[in-house]
Design a protein around this nucleic acid. Structure first.
Lengths: 172, 172
DNA sequence: ACACGAACTGTTATAATATGACAAGCACCT
DNA sequence: AGGTGCTTGTCATATTATAACAGTTCGTGT
């Protein structure tokens, strides 16, 4: 990358999602971070995996596996479903992307590097998705899990509703 | 039903799920409640819908749509996917059942009648599911939504981990 | 440099999950 | 009886996902 990536990242707890970004720099930064992380961990950030992450970052929305497959094929990679699913599995498994269960779709992680419990806000009108941080173990769910003796390893937290833009349109 | 449904319902916030129940009475109570609710709301609690709810209650676990379809077919109903999906859509839409997004499966509601934001604990070893109450709008997610101007209409909260039983086995 | 094992890629084939569309039936209203 | 809308059953198809295997590449030990 040509400059240190510092778009307007003043608020680290920002939802990061229903606003516009400096895409070019955030893509470059995220790729660089993924590369560094893989180097540290001995993971292989192969061309198809890198391309898949680039595609997710560039689209900046939740992509179905077959949309990813189309994009990868256009980029010269294999054209069968496992190509996409395997790249996505790698990205999700290493925290570079998340699966949105509600949409059966995948999106680049907005807070890469940080160990986190992501939460998503999904607009039912335009399907845009924003990532936020959840603290699921702290609320009622955490209490219920402790009471039941359930050991939480991972959480899926997805809110469905209207994003600001679509909400404004609906008012009209 | 033959008696007022009061198994050991002392703790309304109970996880209700990794313990044994009086199935016969809880099934009868839930069916009666659904029937009453439909009567009040002018909904048609038709044979296939009733049967589908009975099946979910009897199995007391998350069932895939095709498992439901098999069970409905055995009960003499139609044998094509829309039969199951439509019955499930009715049950979910009216709060008698929930979809577990993580499993692409459906489970009877453990707190029927109450307007609630369900949360689920899913055991990754035995696929058992317990329902708890979440208060997603109150935690970090709610704060992020307010900050972003996102209007939450519905939430999916699913925790994956080990249930007490499987956790004990793992220790051995 | 070379052999080895592990991981990765691409492929074929198939499984599992889900929906669109249409005709026939039934419930309710007039 | 006739009309309206919801429900059911069916056929057909779309969408999402995985199993299995052969060939290749990568890193390692020699």
């Amino acid at each position: 990358m040509t400059s240190t990536s510092r778009p307007e990242d003043e608020h680290p707890t920002d939802p990061v999602g229903f606003e516009s970004h400096d895409h070019a720099s955030c893509i470059a930064a995220a790729i660089a971070e993924a590369e560094a992380h893989c180097a540290r961990e001995g993971l292989r950030f192969t061309p198809v995996r890198r391309k898949a992450l680039e595609i997710l970052l560039r689209e900046h929305r939740a992509l179905g596996a077959y949309e990813m497959l189309d994009a990868l094929r256009e980029a010269g990679f294999g054209s069968q479903p496992p190509v996409a699913y395997r790249a996505l599995e790698f990205l999700v498994g290493n925290g570079f992307a998340h699966k949105i269960e509600r949409l059966n779709a995948f999106i680049a992680c907005a807070h890469p590097g940080a160990h986190h419990s992501p939460a998503f806000m999904i607009c039912r009108a335009c399907d845009s998705v924003a990532e936020a941080q959840a603290t699921p173990a702290r609320g009622a769910l955490g209490a219920a899990a402790r009471a039941a003796g359930f050991q939480i390893e991972r959480t899926v937290v997805e809110a469905e509703g209207l994003c600001p833009t679509c909400s404004d349109k609906a008012d009209t």
